[in-house]
């Protein structure tokens, strides 16, 4: 126990910095992932077949290959092909975003399609165009409905960000690796490392609950 406490103290500064790095990786990648997700969700519900196919290829490729492979392609692969040389952080954000985007696209598609089609018809019968009705009526409802699944994806993204360590990201897990290599206290170091992730997930889950409650007060269930 003493050892654990001692290691907690000696690693505190390093882990705190790394935790901030993890938060940033997660935040930016998921923000970008949401943007990608919206675009591909629209591809999937559009009436143009080409867009469906593009979305299907993207989603199939992302879901069918390991994230670590995707990270390496973007960081090492693009540089080797002389396409673009990215910093580890940028490559990490990009890879995580492209990865999460595929899942988020499916989340958004599902929640858009789950909105009663009477909503679109009512909006259109009032003279709203399809894009206006989408933006003002369908998407706000779909977004609220997607929050639980989106929250889940966020938690997965937070933990997935550890893989950015492999391309030199200075996030939580990378820091645990270097720390343990120094102090030879694998158990304590990784245990504490795990606690940092756990605390981040718990804080995030709590914030999500508050958000859901707040939206729920405004709009209870499906009541129309």
């Amino acid at each position: 126990m003493d050892v654990l406490l001692e290691i907690f103290q000696t690693t505190f500064v390093g882990f705190s910095k790394a935790a901030w790095q993890t938060i940033q990786l997660t935040f930016w990648s998921l923000l970008l992932g949401i943007g990608i997700g919206i675009i591909f969700a629209f591809f999937k519900i559009s009436k143009y077949k080409v867009l469906h196919i593009i979305a299907d290829i993207y989603i199939t490729f992302i879901r069918g290959t390991p994230l670590i492979v995707q990270i390496f392609i973007i960081y090492f692969g693009l540089a080797q092909m002389n396409i673009v040389t990215l910093e580890d952080f940028t490559a990490g954000v990009l890879a995580l975003a492209i990865h999460a985007g595929a899942y988020i696209a499916e989340i958004f598609r599902g929640s858009i399609q789950s909105i009663d089609k009477g909503q679109m018809e009512a909006a259109q019968s009032l003279g709203m165009t399809y894009p206006l009705a989408m933006r003002r009526i369908i998407l706000p409802q779909a977004f609220r409905r997607s929050i639980p699944a989106l929250g889940n994806q966020f938690i997965i993204g937070l933990k997935d960000s550890s893989l950015v360590a492999f391309i030199g990201g200075k996030e939580l897990w990378a820091t645990a690796m270097t720390t343990a290599a120094d102090n030879f206290r694998q158990f304590e170091t990784f245990f504490i490392n795990g606690l940092y992730y756990l605390v981040l997930v718990i804080i995030f889950t709590y914030l999500l609950k508050i958000l859901e409650k707040k939206l729920d007060v405004e709009q209870r269930g499906e009541a129309t």
């Binding site: 909503q119 018809e121 259109q124 409802q141 129309t224």
Partner: peptide, 18 residues
């Protein structure tokens, strides 16, 4: 534009819940 002139009331109301 046509629909602006033609109001419609549905069996299941379809008010916007949000």
């Amino acid at each position: 534009k046509v629909r602006e002139k033609v109001g419609m009331v549905f069996q299941h109301f379809h008010l916007f819940p949000h």
